[in-house]
Design a protein around this nucleic acid. Structure first.
Lengths: 240, 240
DNA sequence: GCATTAATGGAACTGGAGACCCGTTATGGT
DNA sequence: ACCATAACGGGTCTCCAGTTCCATTAATGC
């Protein structure tokens, strides 16, 4: 149960300020009943508000009001909207769903793709992910939290690729993390760059395409089966 | 040359206010010398500021100061930071680079991947893209602009897939847009979810994997060559 | 149960983003 | 060249997000 957004934050070089005792961030010394209750209420209210009004509409005073909590408390413990979003992300990570095992690479990848699709399509979770990504693009702290989150998620699913390699379904040297990322990537890309909904068909395509590419050795760290063939490309200018 | 961010904005129901003439958005009736100069200066200053301070650090007063332009002008013409970002995106779209033609599918996809990689890796352009994506995740207006931008970019590159199908490199029925998106997706996903830089190697992998999957028929609208095999997947809970 | 003090909550305060007013500049039409 | 007015620019005002202060509540250790 993570309680602090990020402990290693205070500037450290506070020597001149006196104050022999450093108070250590609020919520750490007495995480008991009330503190935990406050965190739960605030995170829920924050989630609701993001879903309703987007990241822009997330102001801490309103969160406090909805959570039935003092405005001061919210500012003291989370300070900024991005700080709150980062904690929300940590909270989401805590209650993540374990991966399923189907026995075949195709089945596992499809299950993964479908799980991602369902999550991103869910009105609440989808909005939260968008908000988190937006916040991370802006704030380094939130970005750290986001990177940690995805590292864990990828590691959680990587074994299904390792097993597939062991079963001989995929060439040796295939990078498991890269395969897992390849399944999610198209779904996120669609979510962010097109107005269309994420269909189950899209998830299936992502899974199938990744499996096909992996079998062709495209994710092998050593020499791949397919030939590169192309020459370099110009740089500069805007791209998609 | 797009000048207004989005014309259809004012609430319309202003009837009670009198004022027989509706003034029509500033910048449209006299887009000549000064107005154009102001827009250029403001967009450049906005870009600089986003790169330096991120989307959060983008305040219109500071933009006005740097652009050597009146604060009032910026507020009148762009109103909000997201409005400014949306216009910046339109400006980026105006000066996009045309696609290159290498003669083979692999070459074309690699060129595309490398172009995207170079753009996202460029300190200025990369920061702008992150900011734009973040703004779009929050603001519907910016999201519209972003969707339009990617629709155009995908359409620009789609022909190289069509040609490949005609050449017999890819199965008939392959969805061109889907293939082009599949090349970019992993790069964007990495940019947003990991702290690591986008390497040329990663771009090459994205291009190779997409080509392999396309050849295997993964992006064919009709029945694919690969078997799906897996069962459904659970929903709910957090995913990557 | 009781003392200690971490953590919360209410209320008053403040600084700066954004709105407004109105005089000035220079564009587009003739 | 000259006029009408679109667009700009400086100064001022307002309002609310975020801060500070201190009294109150309740978690922890004995």
């Amino acid at each position: 149960m993570v309680d602090r957004v990020a402990p290693g934050e205070q500037p450290d070089g506070r020597g001149a300020e006196a104050r022999a005792e450093q108070p250590a961030d609020p919520g750490t010394l007495r995480p008991g009943g009330r503190t935990a209750r406050v965190r739960a209420a605030v995170l829920e209210a924050a989630g609701d508000l993001i879903v309703e009004a987007g990241l822009t509409g997330l102001d801490l005073a309103e969160v406090a009001r909805r959570a039935g909590v003092g405005k001061t408390t919210v500012y003291r413990r989370w300070a900024t909207t991005t700080g709150l979003v980062a904690d929300l992300l940590a909270h989401m990570a805590e209650e993540s769903v374990p991966r399923t095992e189907t026995g075949s690479l195709d089945g596992d990848l499809l299950a993964n793709a479908e799980l991602v699709r369902a999550t991103l399509s869910d009105p609440r979770q989808g909005a939260l992910f968008k908000a988190v990504i937006a916040a991370a693009a802006t704030d380094p702290r939130t970005a750290d939290a986001l990177h940690r989150f995805y590292r864990i998620r990828v590691a959680e699913w990587a074994p299904c690729v390792t097993t597939a390699v062991a079963r001989g379904e995929l060439p040796a040297g295939t990078d498991p993390a890269e395969v897992i990322r390849a399944v999610s990537a198209p779904l996120y890309y669609r979510l962010l760059t097109t107005p269309e909904p994420l269909t189950p068909d899209l998830a299936a395509t992502a899974a199938r395409a990744t499996a096909a590419a992996a079998r062709a050795g495209a994710y092998a760290r050593t020499a791949p089966a397919t030939e590169t063939g192309g020459t370099g490309a110009p740089d500069g200018g805007a791209a998609d």
